[in-house]
Every structure is written in C-alpha cells, then in structure tokens.
Nucleic acid binder design. Structure first.
Lengths: 227, 227
DNA sequence: GCGGGTCGGATTGTTGGACAATCTCCGCGC
DNA sequence: GCGCGGAGATTGTCCAACAATCCGACCCGC
C-alpha cells in the first residue's frame, strides 16, 4: 500500500512543482478560457496560433490542441485552413445550446425525482439557497451570481446521479457562462433568485415540465435581446 | 457574387483531388474507427502511437490528434502518460451510454411529437420499414442490421429538428455500434424488427415514455449478457 | 523468500524547426 | 468594373529531439 511513498514525498517537497503543472495544454486552455469569459477576447476575435504561442509561451502544436479543446467546449470555432475565432452567442447558437441543455437537465431532473420520491434533492436546495444569499447582497458582482447560478444547475444535474450526463453537461459550461453573462443587463439579482426559488417549488409540484418552462423563460429573455 | 469562379472551376476539374482528401487526421481516424468496429482491434488493446504512425503512415502528432478524436467518440480511452486503449463496452460504460442516449433521444422524440401533432414523422416510419426489410431477408449480415438500426434512431433524432442534439447524438455513434454488435447473439433479426415496429405504435399512443421503455429493454438485454 | 526501493527501457508530453497547402488581399490588365 | 494572378499570411503536416512519466525487472536487507 505504500508503493507511492517516493512520489508522494516529491509532491510534498515541491507542491508547485512540475509534478502538478505539467499539462501545457491544460494551462493554455485555462488561460484562453479565462480571457474569453472575462471579455478580454471578444466574440468573433481571431485566435491566431502564432499569437497564442507568443502570449502563452508554448509550442504551436500545444496551441493547436488547445484550440481544438476550446472548440469542444463551444468557446471557439475552428474552420479548416481558416483558423479559429472566439465563439459568439448569436441566436442560432443560443438555440442549440438550450436544445442540448434541455435534454440533459430534464433527464437529470427526471432521474432525481424518480429516486427521491418526487422531491428535490437537498444538494439542490442548498445550491438555490446559496444563489439566494449571493443575490441578496447589496450590488453583488455579477461574476459571483454566474458562479452561484452555475452551482444550482450543476447540483441539479449531479442529483440525477449520472456521471456521463454530468460530463456531457460540463462541456456546456463555457457556453452556459456566456449565456448568464448575456443575462446581466436583462435580469436583476432579485429576478434571478426569484426564478430559481419558484423552480424548486414547481419541480416538486409538476415534475420536469417545470424545468422546461424555466429554461424556455431564460432562453427567450436573452433571445429577444439578441434580436 | 461570382468571386469564387476559379475555386469552383478547380473543384469541378479535380473532383477527387487533394481538395477533399487532405485531412490526414480524418483519414487516420476513419481507419482506426473501422479497425475497431470490425473487431480487428479488440477492446482493451493498446493503441501505441508508434504503431499508428507505422501502420497508417502519418506523423506522431497526427496520430495523437486522431487518438483524442477517437476518445471524443468513445471508441478509445486516453490516460495521461499511459497511452490509449480500445474502449471496452463494460457494464458501467453501457449504463453511461444509455443515460446520455436516453436524454438526447427522449428530448428529440418530445420535439418531434410536439411538432407533428403527436404523430411519428414519415422519415422515421421509412427508416423502420428499412430495418424491417433488412431483417426479413434470409440470414442478413449483422452489419446491415447495425446500419439499418442506426438509421432508425438517427432518423428519430433528426425528426426532432435540432442540429445541436443531432450533433451530440452523432458523437455516440461509435459506442452505439458497439452496443448493437453486442446485441447480435442476444436478439434475432426478427426480434430487432419487432421491437422497433412496436416502438412506433407505442410512441404515438403513449409519447416519449414508450421510447424510454424501448431503450431500457435493449440496455437490460446487453447488461445481463455482460454479467 | 519477500516486501521494499532502485534502475532502465518504453511510451507519452512538449518543443523547435521546416515545408507544403490553402486562404486572403491587393494590384494588374482587359 | 471585373476577373485573373501573385504575394503574404496562416494553417496543416511532417521530422527530429529531449524531458517527464510509467511500467516491469532487478536487487537488497531483513
């Protein structure tokens, strides 16, 4: 059972060492994702490989793999011989996002309600309470709301107890954040909290159909703003 | 409007030219996928980069990207510093596959039924008729049944009229084929045809819940065989 | 023997550099 | 104007090398 003593020792001795830093691709992906979600890289901006190499000090191959990864996450679009661009959340993309999101969340809700005798899992109640608390603060930073909101829906998906669905849902997280960011000028924190409190009650009363309504509301709100 | 004359000309003059052949990655992925689905590469087999380079005459980077792509398709598993293996359809993997599959197909069915006034789209009827015809032949090759079966469920997903869901579903196609292949010793062609004929009728009678039953039946059948 | 650590071969992760293929833009000639 | 080309920029692929890591065989004190 102690075959890993040496390895553990090394990790202890050098906590910020190459042992945990190695994945260059992971590092670059994380950096680009942050720059996109922070708005530093605007939707439509070109993602030129050479720029990435210079900005993040990595090999071009690494940058290329990172771009493919971002494409998988829905944060970039890659066209053959034409390079990559930061994804824009236009009406079409929004629709597609919600189509998949609805499929995954409704199935999760169905599984959760079936397992808990029609009740919403405590985990989800706690996540909504969290969101409620964040939104109740005076002029909370929207970033905190984005996080808390993500927590609610992730808790719901986790409560469905399907690793595979959760994994598929996690791949939507980047796009989902773009959506919540787009919601900022349209919903006040109070509205955000209110919507999710109502969702819980409706879920136990009407089942997954309530979640469908919840999702449609959000989508429609942003779609009208996108024109 | 005619700025592309030259390009179009070139495409017309060389229909099977490098213009459509270039993607080395695509070529390697297709070759590996075929070898896996044909059983030449057995589940659990290691996919060593050097072997791929030699067998398919490509650069190691190309092989690496191909492996990541196969991982996305669920046909290979990639572990950091440990290489890739051909995916095996064990009980856990089967469950995960059907969790996502259920989510995507049920939402597709819901959308289809809502748009067609509770009726199953003609496209799906045709696909089931196809499957029926293939299964009615005397000792049909299972490969043909795999194709026809895939046609049915793809038609159903397409009838949901969500490109994004169809795209997500397409990513399951590799694993799905492994599933249907595993079904070979368990279901006769007649059983296969019968199950899908009943599905259509039940869909129009009971809605998406019928599809859930259909999927559970298939999953349980293979799961019992997997032990 | 035997559980433990050590060492070396095998494999993957990353980098640099090179060249071909392709796209995009701009000026040229009609 | 309009389409044709050429130049520059960018991507796609390949080759070669080294570092990081993993795996299995070996060794060693008990």
């Amino acid at each position: 059972m102690l075959r890993r003593t040496l390895r553990q020792y090394r990790q202890v001795m050098s906590p910020s060492s190459p042992a945990e830093a190695p994945a260059a691709v992971t590092r670059v992906v994380a950096a680009l994702r942050a720059r996109i979600l922070d708005g530093e890289l605007a939707p439509g901006d070109r993602l030129v490989e050479r720029m990435i190499v210079e900005d993040h000090d990595c090999a071009r191959h690494t940058a290329r793999v990172a771009l493919r990864t971002l494409q998988e996450e829905g944060l970039a679009t890659v066209e053959r011989n034409r390079g990559a661009h930061v994804a824009a959340l236009d009406a079409q993309r929004l629709r597609g996002l919600f189509e998949v999101r609805t499929a995954l969340e409704l199935e999760s809700a169905h599984r959760m309600l079936e397992r808990h005798d029609g009740r919403v899992a405590d985990e989800v109640h706690r996540a909504v309470a969290d969101l409620d608390r964040v939104c109740a603060r005076s002029s909370p930073p929207w970033r905190a709301i984005v996080e808390a909101h993500e927590g609610v829906h992730e808790a719901l998906v986790r409560a469905g107890e399907s690793e595979r669905i959760a994994e598929a849902y996690a791949r939507l997280s980047g796009e989902l954040r773009l959506f919540v960011i787009a919601l900022r000028p349209l919903w006040t924190p109070a509205t955000m909290a209110e919507h999710h409190r109502r969702l819980l009650a409706a879920l136990e009363r009407e089942g997954p159909a309530a979640l469908r309504r919840h999702l449609v509301e959000g989508e429609e709100t942003v779609r009208r703003a996108l024109g």
